[in-house]
Amino acid sequence: MKIEKAILAAITTHKDEVGGGVPVFFCKETAQMEFIAANLEAILDGIAHRLSDTLYIIVKH
């Protein structure tokens, strides 16, 4: 099955910002968050979108 428009993962430094059924990666600092987002983007073939300074999501388009 081809997945279209789905949030594959969320990466955040603020635990309170995300919840629910999506895989969440908690990070200690912004640099680590960007590093994980860049890696996940490559691994998952998705695009890393920034919703706020403390929250990234990986979306499959």
Binding site: E34, A37, A38, E41, I47, A48, H49, R50, Y56
Partner: peptide
Amino acid sequence: IMNIGLPER
């Protein structure tokens, strides 16, 4: 156009 999150991108 679109949302590009990563600074290096």
